[in-house]
């Protein structure tokens, strides 16, 4: 099995059955996983912040860093690799977005990431089929192209699927 590792703000897509895509330790970042299980195409982007307007230069260097630039790009890229051209037939799963509880509402980047992502997906006529977001722990996630199964683990190595 060949594993493609996605860093913060990076994305990857694959249509090779023997490949998987993985990102480590999401913190308040969110991994957006988009796949077509019939055509066997999978993609993942590791989104760190909601909006690219705070640094448009960074967004052009690393579009996956922001929800508003990363998600449309990932949708285009999975289609280029052979996924369905109908957005509504693509499956979306969201993982990460750990939350720091802050009554002052400043540290809620995890929740703001999730809100921004849902808004963009909605505009694209898509919605997440499954999510594992929030709470206060960091997640690692991997999608296997062949089965399109999404496996998550925590820092102590405990695993589960969504």
């Amino acid at each position: 099995m060949n594993r493609i590792v996605v860093g913060v703000g990076e994305y990857a897509v694959s249509n090779i059955m023997s490949e998987s895509i993985k990102t480590y330790a999401l913190g308040s970042c969110i991994a957006v996983v988009i796949f077509d299980n019939i055509k066997k195409v999978a993609g993942m982007v590791h989104v760190a912040l909601p909006e690219s307007k705070i640094d448009i230069n960074r967004a052009s260097e690393l579009p996956g860093y922001f929800a508003d630039t990363g998600i449309p790009l990932l949708v285009d890229e999975v289609k280029k690799k052979g996924a369905t051209h109908f957005n509504k037939n693509l499956t979306v799963k969201l993982i990460g977005g750990a939350q720091i509880s802050d009554p002052n509402n400043t540290f809620n980047i995890g929740r703001r990431n999730a809100m921004a992502i849902n808004k963009i997906l909605w505009k694209l006529g898509m919605g997440p089929k499954a999510t594992d977001i929030g709470k206060n722990f960091s997640r690692t996630v991997e999608i296997d192209v062949n089965s399109c199964s999404v496996i998550i683990n925590n820092a102590t190595g405990k695993k589960w699927m969504i």
């Binding site: 999401l26 760190a48 720091i100 002052n104 820092a155």
Partner: peptide
């Protein structure tokens, strides 16, 4: 800790003091 990456197993398992 928010960046997740580059952190240990205790990442994000500490409360924030809102009096900041």
């Amino acid at each position: 800790m928010m960046s997740g990456k580059d952190n240990g197993i205790d990442c994000l398992t500490y409360p924030l003091d809102p009096d900041y």
